[in-house]
Amino acid sequence: MIPPRFEYAAPKSIGEAVGLLKSSGGEAKVLAGGQSMIPLLKLRLAAPALLVDINRIEGLDYIRESGGFLRVGALTRVATLSRSALLERRYGALHDASLTIADPLVRNLGTVGGNISHGDPSNDLPAVLLAAEGELAATGPSGGRTFRAEDFFVDTFTTALAQDEILTEARIPVPPPRSGGVYLKVEQKVADFATAGVAVQVSLGRESECAKVGIGLTGVGPTALKAKKAEGAMLGKKATDRKAVEEAGELAADASSPASDIRGTAEYKRGLIRMLVARGLDRASQRARRKS
């Protein structure tokens, strides 16, 4: 499988990259890790006139906490997330998700920014951002803007980014004490896309009740979904409250709109969502308690 012809540029700065995107008149695509883009090119499902390779831009590969946020540079490789002790300790859902994306070879190149801005409802990081009330920073011709993750995922393969904007950073608010997150994914086989995936982020109150709850869903709608009603159902409830947990699972399944495909029927996927939400709440709460 051979890609179609395209022009190529490897700018050294974000400004230069944005300029190239702007002047292409919508015919350019950003190349980050390339692990989704290059297969699309090979299958000739994408045919950009220009590929803007942002890998040569310095300063987009970092993981740090500052200003009340965990900040992950867009060019941070997925494998780097897996190796981060900070993530393992405090951002469990993000860490879990990094270990389930594709396979280790793909993770060595695939980037955080690419995984998010591709807008693929089957990608794993968007659900984590939705659960964790994340934000996304982008730079365009007229400067920077910040999106709430909730507003970012518009439709399948469509995000809120303008064609001449580049995602530069993903942010997650530093969680309060007694918080925990988890990402659970059911895949048919290793390296597959999720049949269904669930990210859960909880912060526990004094009585171990859920003071804050975030639930994100992978692969069961046109975009990654934020299961708001399910989150609401758990507020003030404990993860051991079977009835509340079941209701949350039910509401999350209701919020999803999976398609029947080679990975399974829609009903099966809804069933997985119920199961994974219940398990996710349980495990996220366990992590929250362990880290108090």
Binding site: Y8, I38, L105
Partner: peptide, 11 residues
């Protein structure tokens, strides 16, 4: 370790 079918030579 990376898959060389998913990297451009220019990269």
């Amino acid at each position: 370790a990376v898959k060389s079918c998913t990297v451009l030579a220019v990269q």
